[in-house]
């Protein structure tokens, strides 16, 4: 199998993944997205890969590349829809609600005045989050009306247009930890707790991680949550609510795990690499069954030749070419 691993910065995780792919006998090519020119009508060099594994640190670069590659018929990991859903907290919440996955209550508004009403509907304290963001950036706990008015005014004046969306989340009075479960191919393979005396429990904000057992309840909730967003590989963050039990807070489509292999005893990078290869193999086999033409090459040829839908392509490809 030939895997392209796209990235913008090579962190420890990407090095671990490259090693894992090589250990498993795969041909992995790291590709710095900053060096690439995409032609949305032609795969070019991308035709040689069985799958593309995205590890870009930049969400913008991820979305740009995966939109193009997936539209050309490349099997991307994660799929575009999963990335778009996980990257947006509102989209994630909606996916959870549709799937019946328990999650903290939210209120959403698109104006500061109605935003204040949204916050007051939830009551104090509550949590204000940018709909797009990671590592706990600009996540604020609002303890009273004065703070709410102040934060909303700051966002209105200083924030980008994206910050005009007020996504207010119920504050969960959790113990001094949250829980992260790593889900690969529909299996909950490992879990950690992230402990901090600060109400934010992101490891990027100083929380300390330790391995914990994947209980049946954690496995069930996490796999259901990941299924609801359609991700192949993801990390699920859960909160323990004193009255309602486990709630799924969010899902990370490009998880970090450098400190979680030793704390959990699970070679997360190896499991991820193996699952990526399984997906690539299945995609290639499906394509072979479709006419012994590499799926990527067929999509590429069809795009170049101007062939439309109605050929023997999969529905996904037909949609692209129509």
């Amino acid at each position: 199998m030939r895997i392209a691993m796209t990235y913008t910065r090579l962190r420890v995780e990407e090095r671990m993944l490259i090693d894992a792919f090589e250990d498993l006998g795969a041909d992995v090519t790291p590709i710095d997205l900053r060096t690439v020119v995409f032609n949305p009508t032609s795969l070019g060099e991308w035709a040689q890969y069985d799958a593309v594994f995205d590890r870009s640190l930049s969400l913008t670069n991820t979305l740009t590349s995966i939109r193009i590659l997936e539209s050309l018929g490349v099997r991307c990991i994660n799929p575009l829809h999963a990335i778009e859903t996980c990257a947006d907290k509102l989209a994630t919440t909606l996916a959870f609600i549709r799937a019946g996955v328990p999650t903290p209550e939210v209120r959403v508004a698109v104006d500061s005045d109605s935003g204040l009403d949204a916050i007051e509907q939830l009551g104090y304290p509550c949590v204000l989050k940018p709909t797009v963001g990671s590592w706990g950036r600009l996540v604020s706990r609002i303890n009273d009306r004065d703070a709410a008015e102040s934060i909303l005014e700051h966002r209105e004046v200083l924030g980008s247009v994206n910050h005009s969306v007020v996504y207010a989340q119920e504050h969960i009075n959790k113990p001094d930890r949250d829980i992260r479960v790593f889900v690969v191919g529909g299996n909950a393979i490992a879990a950690i707790e992230r402990r901090s005396e600060h109400w934010l429990t992101n490891t990027a904000r100083g929380a300390v991680a330790a391995g914990m057992e994947v209980t049946p309840e954690l496995a069930d909730l996490s796999t259901r949550a990941v299924a609801s967003v359609g991700a192949d590989i993801a990390a699920v963050d859960l909160l323990e609510c004193p009255s309602r039990g486990l709630l799924v807070n969010e899902i990370n489509h490009s998880m970090e795990f450098r400190n979680s292999t030793t704390t959990t005893g699970v070679d997360i990078h190896r499991v991820v690499a193996q699952h990526t290869l399984d997906i690539a193999q299945a995609h290639a086999s499906q394509a072979a069954g479709d006419g012994d033409i590499h799926p990527v090459q067929r999509a590429c040829d069809a795009s170049i030749d101007g062939e439309g839908a109605g050929s023997s392509g999969t529905p996904e490809r037909e949609g692209v070419l129509a």
């Binding site: 640190l57 930049s58 969400l59 990671s134 590592w135 980008s160 990390a235 490009s254 970090e256």
Partner: peptide
């Protein structure tokens, strides 16, 4: 630091975290 060239190996200060970086 970020490696910006591998032959010879050249380093520059890594960029600050940008708004769309994350997991």
């Amino acid at each position: 630091l970020e490696v910006i060239n591998t032959d010879p190996i050249t380093l520059e200060l890594a960029p600050e975290v940008e708004e769309d970086w994350g997991e």
